[in-house]
Simulated assay, not measured.
Amino acid sequence: MDLRIFTEPQQGASYDTLLTVAKATEDLGFDAFFRSDHYLSMGSADGLPGPTDAWITLAGLARETSRIRLGTLMTAGTFRLPGVLAIQVAQVDQMSGGRVELGLGAGWFEEEHKAYGIPFPKEKFARLEEQLAVVTGLWGTETGKTFSHDGTYYTLQDSPALPKPVQQRIPVLIGGHGATRTPRLAARYADEFNIPFASLEDTERQFGRVRAAAEEAGRTPDDLVYSNALVVCAGRDDAEVARRAAAIGRDVDELKANGLAGSPAEIVDKIGRYAAAGSSRIYLQILDLDDLDHLELLSSQVQSQLN
């Protein structure tokens, strides 16, 4: 089971804070550092000192880390034109020596679009499908040849399809709870399918849909990685769990029901149940980015048992 650290910087984090967490992620032996792609805080968080851009952040981390994978859950398709996104991600892949992964979603948080003047189109899913075709098409075009695309939303003419990433194929992550279109899109474009904040039952059901869609598309279902994103709140005892839950404004019982919470043994046991449902990778959503002791506990007493 791969464990990856997943952060939500829109809730309030500077680049320096993210760098500290990313370095701890690397030093403590986790597989990857991922971040969300949002420009506005959610819930009661004030968001101070303000938003950081996902791909600018990852570009910086690419130069200041050496081992961990770097990526997004999920880049909002509404934020960037697909040709520009292909250039940005390929460049960060070069800067990292080939350690980048792209999670790409349709975008859903209307308020952040209003706050920063970003268009919020109605046909987001159809645009996402075309964006995936453009981004992967640009990366997959042989050097020296050109890429063209005449679509409903995007038109590219004789693009040199540069720069090229270091990796022969940058892993593409697609995720969500949609019963029909999402599995079909994953079967066509994804290297990994991720379901966020889902129960064991919903996880097993959605993985089954994706596997069926992959077979229908002529792919071997096991060619995809299947993963979960889950909030984590670990403690050496009940008091420590309660303290960490309070720090992120959550209830312990709710966290135990909907995420990974409790003692390391409880968390290892629940991860095992997700593994039985088909998951081979967990993105641990860390909401208190100043609590590095939490990361150390997860490394020494959770990850060590899974390895």
Rank of each mutant, 00 (worst) to 15 (best):
L298A: 03
F30D: 00
L289H: 12
A133S: 15
R250H: 13
A214W: 06
G259A: 10
L85Y: 08
H149R: 10
E123N: 15
F30G: 00
D158V: 04
P82F: 00
F125C: 03
G77E: 14
E112Y: 07
S148H: 06
G259M: 06
T65N: 05
R209S: 11
R244V: 01
I5H: 12
G140P: 13
L28A: 02
Q303N: 13
T155D: 08
I271M: 07
A76P: 00
L28P: 04
S148P: 10
I195Y: 01
R69T: 08
Q301C: 05
L132W: 07
D191W: 06
T155W: 03
A45S: 15
D251L: 05
F34P: 03
L224S: 02
L85Q: 11
H149V: 03
P165S: 06
M74W: 09
G272L: 00
V92A: 01
V21T: 12
G178V: 02
L58D: 09
K124V: 15
S96M: 00
T141D: 02
D2T: 11
A261T: 04
R219W: 02
A161I: 05
L40C: 01
V225T: 13
E8A: 12
G83D: 09
D53T: 09
V268P: 08
I282G: 02
K145L: 11
F193C: 10
E266S: 12
E201A: 15
R273W: 02
V135R: 03
G235A: 05
T220D: 15
Q157P: 03
D238F: 01
L306H: 05
G140C: 04
F207D: 13
A106M: 13
L287Q: 08
S227K: 03
A265D: 15
L289D: 05
F30W: 00
R209N: 13
G77Y: 08
D16G: 11
S304W: 10
S304R: 13
A229I: 10
L230N: 12
Y153W: 05
Q303W: 05
E26H: 03
P9N: 03
E111F: 04
L289F: 08
L85R: 04
S148E: 01
G12S: 01
A276K: 15
L306Q: 04
V232S: 14
L287E: 04
A234V: 09
E110P: 05
R250K: 15
P119Y: 01
A213K: 05
L287F: 11
L70V: 06
R281N: 14
A62V: 05
A161V: 12
W108H: 02
Q94F: 08
L138C: 05
A265S: 15
V231E: 12
A76H: 01
V89L: 01
L58H: 10
A115V: 07
Q206P: 09
E110N: 06
V84Q: 12
S14I: 04
S44I: 09
G262E: 04
L81A: 09
G71D: 14
A247M: 09
T75V: 02
V92D: 02
D158P: 08
K256Y: 01
